[in-house]
Nucleic acid binder design. Structure first.
Length: 721
RNA sequence: GCCGCUGUGGCGAAAUGGCAGACGCAGGGGACUUAAAAUCCCCAGAUCGUAAGAUCGUGCGGGUUCGAGUCCCGCCAGCGGCACCA
């Protein structure tokens, strides 16, 4: 039995086994078969168990019978394992009663197990909120007070977690509370929110429900507890508090805060050999194996033991890596075996063992490739110690960088981007694997990733999640063929904030494609463009790139000095794009570039220096187009060098200073006029200019000005009444 | 149930507490064209008005403030993740 709240042991009024729990099978077996007792046991060797199931050792039959007789109990066989008889040493009378009750319940138990087995995982976990269960007919003994508590089976207890068996404390666990209400099981409060002095928090009450209402069979399987000595609490309380109703001759937890009560009861249980403290780690079991070819094969082989039962074995390190065979056919076999099963030469090993034919999912590789990238050519190790520590370890950072600032470049992977749906689990596993590697001493940090950004899901054009069944899937390949990689990339960034969920819109791609066309025409001569398009129609495919390169830049591009207005437009764009990239606001960075291009299109003379810098801003968003135009510009001016190696431009704030400002004027908080003032205007000048504005006069007529609020360079608000 | 995100025009969206709707899509009008496409220019939140203009307007209800899409309190709705983990 497993619990995280040992302090509530006095409040355990029943216990629950998972329906699949092996003990249930043993109980059913017990009900069906008349057990052999004492002299009728056939095996020569006997493992003796005390009534709690604890093994007292294996001995010869005669010795075991003597052992039992000496203590006035019987030896009851409950099973045989490897020619050794498993026997309880306890009074047969009580045991017979149990068999009687089990036999009464056996039909119900089997029916319930069948019902549960028929349920899908979905039904059992996500949908099934209603509690179901069946009493087994058996009782357990609560070690702290000797109470008999009924053992139920219910599917709200999972066989796969803990021990698949729980003590139910309905007063302090929501699930137990619901179950107890459903089946009228007793509820005893043992934790109080408020501190209660030990002397007034009552003893385990006489005539408590578990003593009074044990005969569940006679009550039709239901414990009709109707109040009395212990009034059930009005609501379930799962928080910490102070022990009440938790005293027996053996020990008392009354008045103790939860943390102390836990310590005390655990110490007591351990001293009696009734339990041990343990730490339980949880890791979600994400279906790991696939019946596909494309994935890493498992380094696992299957063998048969003496009884012909299959068991699996890990291959030794010397057998790694396990490389997949290259079959002719990558489809599953007719009888549903994975594709690898086709490669019988590969599957069957000389010693008669057989390889696992399922493969790992793709994320098995992606959980650690950030490490492999650090040293991808290394043939002897997945990453060398030197490379790992250079890239991943904080101590390798340049001493010029202060180690205390959290804003400076970090060690490890700076940024992990992924949608929640995928990244929650992938990230969880990647971190888990990294921690395993850390514990094994292969990496120098326990955490690989510095920052997480969840990008938003792209929905279908109908605003619903893309799925084959809805028929709203957009294939990026089609977009790529129609509009090119730059347009696809640009549109994905233009749609909205990175982390927002947003619907796809193919017409929107056409929009940014149009923008890229405008950029192209900003640089390229219109006549040359027309000539190029006509030539393209008849050109051989192989000749097309050369044709593209031969298109000259437009005559309006000149090596002339930029005007102040042009510099202002450029530097405003640099500022916005630089800051937005830093904050991953790609959509507004792109709109800033659109604004720049819209303006630049109107320039009669386009200074090459300005357009060249603009291309650098565009490059991260539309790398192909930017690089192409960069080459054209440089053929004409500078020696050609890839755009990727040129330092990011800086902006000059002095170029962005405005001479005059448009200042909104409000009357009583409502916008009534906009005035033009010199950028350097003092507050008093703003006030008088505002009051003098023609458009605000009607709103001041017949009123007195009470107050004027001036926000320098921003706004004037006249309060009048 | 727990956790997270999001509510602003017909649509995607923008807005250090200070002119709500930048930029773009769809739409309307015009130019070019024999015509269409492409391209270029203009209009475009709603209501009333011929117009100038006025009023209303950022999911809902309160609050703070000269001023709230933005801050505070309380709701509602949608989306996503996790989920009888004792």
């Amino acid at each position: 039995m497993f619990t995280t709240r040992p302090d509530t042991l006095f409040g355990a009024t029943y216990m629950v086994l998972a329906p699949e729990h092996p003990l249930i099978s043993s109980l059913l077996e017990l009900a069906r078969k008349q057990p052999r007792i004492n002299g009728r046991i056939r095996s020569a060797r006997v493992e003796v168990l005390d009534p709690s199931g604890k093994s007292l050792g294996i001995m010869d039959l005669s010795e075991a019978i003597g052992f039992a007789r000496q203590r006035g109990v019987d030896l009851i066989e409950v099973g045989v394992k490897q020619n050794v008889s498993i026997c309880f040493a306890q009074d047969y009378g009580g045991f017979r009663d149990l068999r009687v009750r089990l036999n009464q319940q056996v039909g119900a138990i089997q029916k319930y197990r069948d019902l549960v087995a028929a349920k899908s995982d979905l039904e059992r976990t996500e949908l099934a909120k209603e509690k179901t269960g069946v009493w087994t007919g058996a009782y357990a003994t609560n070690p702290v007070n000797g109470e008999k508590i009924p053992i139920w089976i219910a599917d709200y207890v999972l066989a796969s977690y803990g021990t698949g068996a729980i003590m139910a404390v309905p007063a302090h666990d929501e699930r137990d509370w619901e179950f107890a209400k459903e089946f009228y099981l007793p509820i005893v409060e043992v934790v109080s929110k408020e501190s209660v002095p030990p002397d007034v928090s009552g003893d385990w009450p006489a005539g408590s429900p578990s003593q009074r209402s044990v005969d569940l069979v006679s009550a039709g399987g239901r414990n009709l507890y109707a109040g009395g000595d212990v009034r059930p609490p009005e609501a379930c309380y799962v928080g910490d508090g102070f022990g009440i109703n938790s005293t027996s001759g053996a020990l008392s937890l009354n008045g103790l805060p939860t943390a102390e009560a836990k310590e005390k009861i655990v110490a007591w249980l351990e001293s009696k050999g009734l339990g041990t403290k343990t730490i339980n780690y949880k890791l979600r079991d994400w279906l790991f194996s696939r019946q596909r070819y494309w994935g890493e094969p498992f380094p696992i082989v299957w063998k048969e033991d003496a009884n012909g039962d299959l068991f699996h074995e890990a291959l030794p390190e010397s057998a790694l890596p396990v490389l997949p065979p290259a079959p002719d056919d990558y489809t599953p076999t007719a009888d549903g075996q994975p594709p690898l099963a086709r490669a019988t030469d590969w599957v069957e090993l000389p010693d008669g063992s057989v390889r696992e034919t399922n493969t790992m999912p793709q994320w098995a590789g992606s959980c650690w490739y950030y490490l492999r990238y650090l040293d991808s050519a290394n043939a002897s190790s997945f990453v060398s110690t030197a490379a790992e520590s250079y890239w991943m370890s904080p101590s390798s950072l340049s001493p010029l960088l202060s180690p205390v600032s959290p804003f400076l470049p970090s060690s490890g992977v700076d940024l992990y981007v992924g949608g929640t749906e995928h990244a929650v689990l992938h990230l969880l596993y990647a971190r888990f694997w990294h921690k395993v590697l850390f514990d094994l001493g292969h990496v120098s940090t326990p955490e690989p990733f510095f920052k997480l950004v969840n990008q938003g899901l792209i929905l279908g054009e109908d605003g619903q999640k893309m799925s084959k069944s809805r028929g709203n899937v957009v294939n990026p390949d089609d977009i790529l063929n129609e509009y090119g990689a730059d347009a696809l990339r640009l549109f994905e960034m233009f749609m909205g904030p990175l982390s927002d969920v947003k619907p796809w819109n193919t017409q929107g791609v056409a929009g940014v494609y149009k923008f890229l066309g405008r950029v192209w025409r900003l640089f390229v001569d219109e006549a040359a463009e027309t000539a190029f398009e006509q030539a393209l129609v008849t050109a051989e495919v192989a000749a097309q790139p050369a044709l593209l390169q031969s298109v000259p830049v437009g005559a309006s591009l000149q090596e002339s000095p930029a005007t102040p207005a042009q510099l202002k437009a450029l530097h405003a764009c640099i500022k916005k794009v630089t800051e937005d990239l830093e904050g991953m606001r790609f959509n507004t960075a792109i709109s800033a570039m659109m604004i720049f291009v819209n303006e630049a299109m109107t320039w009669g003379v386009k200074p090459v220096s300005v357009l060249r810098t603009f291309l650098q801003l565009l490059a991260p968003f539309a790398p192909h187009l930017a690089e192409e135009l960069w080459e054209k510009l440089n053929v004409r001016s500078l020696p050609a060098e890839s755009l990727s190696y040129v330092a990011w431009p800086a902006y000059d704030p002095s170029l962005l200073v405005e001479d005059t400002l448009e200042i909104p004027v409000q009357v009583n908080g409502k916008l009534r006029a906009v005035i033009q003032v010199p950028a350097a205007a003092a507050n008093a000048e703003l006030e008088s200019a505002a009051l003098a504005a023609e458009k605000i006069q009607p709103f001041l007529a017949g009123k007195t000005v009470k107050k004027i609020i001036v926000v320098p360079r921003k706004l004037v608000n006249v309060i009048a009444a």
